[in-house]
C-alpha cells in the first residue's frame, strides 16, 4: 500500500489536510514538516517507507492546505500548533507512534512528547533542534527575515 492518500481531518472544527500511506495495522509514523513548507516535503520519503509503516504527514495549521484562520480568531503560536496536531493524532487514531521532526516540526513534536511520553515509540530528528549549541547566529538572525533570503542562504549550503 505505497499509494498515497490525500485526506482532511475535522479536528474540533479545524481542517487539517494530510497525506497518508501504508497499512493501518503497521507501526505508525507521524511526519512533521518545517518552515516554509508543508507535507509535500515528504513526497519522496513517503513511498520509500510505506511498505513498513502507517505514515501520516499533516500540514501544520497555517501551512499548505490546512486551515489558516485569520489572526484575530487563531493565535499563531507553537503551543497552539502543537495543540491542534495533538488533537489531530487522536482524531485519526494515532495512539502510539514514532515521530519524524524537521525544523518547526521539532518544537511541535517535542511538545507532543512532553505531553504524552507514553505515546512516543521513537523520534527521528532531521535538522530538528533542541539545544542552544545547535543554533547558529544565522539561524537566530534569520528568524525575523523573509523566506526568500532564508531560502537563499540555505541553498547556498546545499550541494548542486
Amino acid at each position: 500500500m505505497s499509494q498515497v492518500r490525500y485526506r482532511t481531518a475535522d479536528v474540533d472544527g479545524f481542517k487539517v489536510f494530510y497525506r497518508e500511506a501504508g497499512s493501518p495495522g503497521a507501526p505508525k509514523l507521524l511526519l512533521l514538516h518545517g518552515f516554509p513548507s508543508a507535507g509535500h516535503m515528504f513526497r519522496d520519503l513517503i513511498p520509500l517507507l510505506a511498505d513498513r509503516f502507517h505514515i501520516v504527514a499533516p500540514d501544520l495549521p497555517g501551512f499548505g492546505q490546512s486551515d489558516t484562520p485569520p489572526r484575530n480568531t487563531f493565535s499563531y503560536t507553537f503551543d497552539n500548533i502543537a495543540g491542534v496536531i495533538d488533537r489531530f493524532t487522536e482524531v485519526i487514531g494515532f495512539d502510539r507512534y514514532a515521530v519524524y521532526v524537521f525544523d518547526y516540526g521539532a518544537p511541535t513534536g517535542f511538545r507532543l512528547a512532553l505531553k504524552h511520553p507514553e505515546r512516543i515509540t521513537a523520534i527521528i530528528s532531521q535538522n530538528g533542534n533542541a539545544y542552544e549549541e545547535g543554533l547558529s547566529d544565522a539561524g537566530r538572525r534569520s528568524r525575523p527575515i523573509g523566506r526568500t533570503r532564508r531560502r537563499r542562504i540555505a541553498m547556498r549550503y546545499a550541494p548542486s
Partner: peptide
C-alpha cells in the same frame, strides 16, 4: 524517558548546526 532517537542531519545547514 530515553526515547529511541535517530538524528539525520544535513551537516551544512546554516541554521541548525
Amino acid at each position: 524517558h530515553q526515547p529511541p532517537f535517530l538524528a539525520v542531519w544535513g551537516k551544512n545547514d546554516p541554521f541548525f548546526l
